[in-house]
Design a protein around this nucleic acid. Structure first.
Length: 574
RNA sequence: GCCAGCGUAGCUCAGGGGUAGAGCAGCGGUUUCGUAAACCGCCGGUCGAUGGUUCGAAUCCAUUCGCUGGCUCCA
């Protein structure tokens, strides 16, 4: 039996249950969604979580009665009469093109519905209502807000339980929770919501990511720039941001009677640098990268840990090239982007090519040509991709890469965007081999997205247990008794000399307790040192995953961990 | 921003009109320990903030800030 059919049927049963509790309920839509279903209602009062068990009981009653789902075809005129007191259904009927519409009924409830449904309510074996939320009719905030109940349903109790277990598992990996537990970052009320404070350990991870990022960019012919956090309002007027992006920008601040804006983007600064002198075709392409911190206004309700914030650092870069170079450049960026994703351990991803939206800058011809170039580049890299029609940004087509974490959730990753707009607004050109000014081709791209969101994805992907090269503390040395402390210090300075991030568990406490603490902090390597180890310059190694290997030479351990770090290994070795 | 829920010690949580509680963490001791929690003691909160109801508010009401789940949007 199709899972979507079960879920959609469960939505109808839920609607009947709600109808029995609120006879005047107005019904919106009730589809199945990727992990369950929902139904939207307009009700005389707000639902609370207390209503969930009541509705659940009612649904169980309906299911136990094993009522058949009956299908009926009527013409639209009849349908309008049947749903005369249901304004949302009437709106839906008006939008149906055919003259006949189908209705499905079970028990006391009839719904306008394309179907299909299970034969009878008894076929719904396992469901659970999950949450209540507000949702605008048709997702438009100018419309009435309806009340949505989310639920899920599965073929069997077992698969439902499995799903609930997975939800709990996801909760344990939540980067906000782990960020606090592992002391990686915080967001402070006094400081402001959506503004991230990076603690030493979180900052260490970020520093390692940034170092890797810089090294890879330098290898690939990028230059790294730094630009200011504010700029005069006029600049943002020229760029068009003040007109089109103002909702996401902070209010101007006054400096010497001149208005300045805190930057929501880095691109305009890079253009200014480009324009400081004439550029020859010979020096193209220019690849300019910046870890640029930008500030964007986000409505309070959308902020979420590190993944949706108001100040964030983009791993931004702009490529200025000749149009003929675009294809090669995009191939290069794809190569870099895929390397990044792979190195950080994401092995599942989806590539989307977004095409021209309804409102667009540039000409149809430019759009066509650049979209073609993007798809040719994708084919050259042998990347499977899907077209996302009309989802391009107004200034140009783009490639988005969405990667999946360890528990199957999708994250917005690299994005490569062609821009027809800014080069025109700023008159960005180069001098061609004919001595004449030519329009530049400009690409915006990030390969991680933002440091904040990327760290969120890493934390959840690894559940806080980072591969060794990223672990903020790579080794903790646990002396069995105080008389082993000096040996521990010796090992520590030896490891630190080679940039292996090492700590000594020198606090008061038993060996067991120190191990427990190291485990909770998800430190990959624990070195237990006591009398035995000290006499032979050995260490006993315990890995975060519980495996242990006793009395191995320290030099051997160091060799193994050094190799693991150098190779950015995802597994723990010893 | 809108709808709903939640804010009690650094953390996790109990209490729910009559003098603020526990565990962990921290601090001071004792213990010197062999692969996931040694023992004793101490410190710690104007119960998110403001206003109101009340003899009395952490508890009830209003406003506000923050967080959570959605809607919408996105790096």
């Amino acid at each position: 039996m199709n899972i979507d059919t079960i879920r959609h049927s469960a939505a109808h049963v839920m609607a009947e249950a709600v109808l029995s509790l609120f006879p005047n309920a107005k019904f919106g839509i009730g589809p199945s969604i990727s992990n369950g279903f929902y139904y939207d209602f307009e009700l005389p009062r707000s639902l609370t979580t207390d209503d969930i068990p009541i509705i659940t009981d009612k649904m169980n009653e309906i299911i136990n009665k094993d009522l058949p789902f009956k299908k009926e075809e009527v013409n639209k005129e009849n349908a309008r009469q049947i749903f005369s007191s249901q304004p949302y259904k009437l709106e839906l009927i008006d939008e149906i093109e055919e003259n006949m519409v189908s209705l499905y009924s079970q028990g006391e409830f009839t719904d306008l519905c394309r179907g299909p449904h299970v034969e009878s309510t008894g076929k719904i074996k396992a469901f659970k209502l999950l949450s209540i939320a507000g949702a605008y009719w048709r997702g438009d905030e100018n419309n009435q807000m309806l009340q949505r109940i989310y639920g899920t349903a599965f073929e069997s109790k077992d698969t439902l339980d499995d799903y609930i277990r997975k939800l709990n598992e996801a909760g344990k990996r939540d980067h906000r929770k782990l960020g606090k537990e592992l002391d990686l970052f915080s967001i402070n009320e006094e400081c402001g919501s959506g503004l991230v404070l990076w603690h030493p350990l979180g900052a260490t991870i970020r520093r390692i990511i940034e170092q890797f990022w810089k090294d890879e960019h330098l290898k690939r012919g990028y230059d790294i720039l730094y630009t200011p956090h504010i700029a005069k309002l006029g600049l943002w007027k020229t760029s068009g941001h003040w007109k089109f992006y103002r909702d996401n920008m902070y209010s101007p601040m006054e400096v010497d009677e001149e208005e300045y804006i805190i930057k929501p983007m880095n691109c305009v600064y890079h253009i200014l640098i480009y324009k400081t002198r004439l550029r020859s075709y010979r020096e193209l392409p220019l690849r300019w990268a910046e870890l640029g911190t930008v500030y964007r206004y986000e409505r309070s309700g959308v902020l979420h840990g590190l993944s949706r914030v108001r100040g964030f650092t983009q791993d931004d870069a702009h490529i200025f090239c000749r149009f003929e170079q675009l294809e090669d450049e995009v191939v290069e960026v794809l190569d870099l982007a895929l390397l990044m994703i792979d190195t950080f351990g994401f092995n599942k991803y989806k590539i989307l090519l977004s095409t021209r939206p309804e409102k667009y800058a540039g000409t149809i011809d430019m759009w066509q040509k650049s979209t073609d170039i993007l798809s040719i580049a994708l084919e050259r890299k042998k990347c499977a991709y899907e077209i996302d029609p009309g989802e391009g940004v107004f200034y140009g087509p783009k490639i988005d890469i969405k990667f999946e974490d360890a528990i199957g959730r999708a994250w917005q990753g690299p994005t490569i965007q062609v821009d027809f707009n800014l080069p025109k607004r700023f008159e960005v050109t180069y001098i061609g081999d004919d001595g004449k000014e030519q329009p530049i081709a400009m690409v915006h791209r990030t390969v991680l997205g933002s440091m904040e969101r990327f760290l969120a994805s890493l934390i959840e992907h690894y559940g806080g247990a980072f591969p060794t090269w990223l672990s903020p503390v790579q080794v903790t040395i646990i002396p069995v008794a105080d008389r082993h402390l000096n040996y521990a210090y010796e090992l520590e300075s030896n490891l630190k000399k080679d940039d292996i991030r090492t700590e000594i568990a020198h606090q008061q406490g038993t060996v067991n307790n120190k191990i427990r603490q190291a485990q909770n902090r998800k430190i990959p390597y624990m070195l237990i040192v006591g009398d035995r180890e000290m006499t032979d310059t050995n260490v006993s190694v315990r890995l975060r995953n519980g495996t242990q290997k006793n009395d191995i030479p320290f030099s051997k351990f160091k060799e193994v961990i050094t190799k693991t770090i150098r190779e950015k290994g995802k597994e723990l070795n010893i």
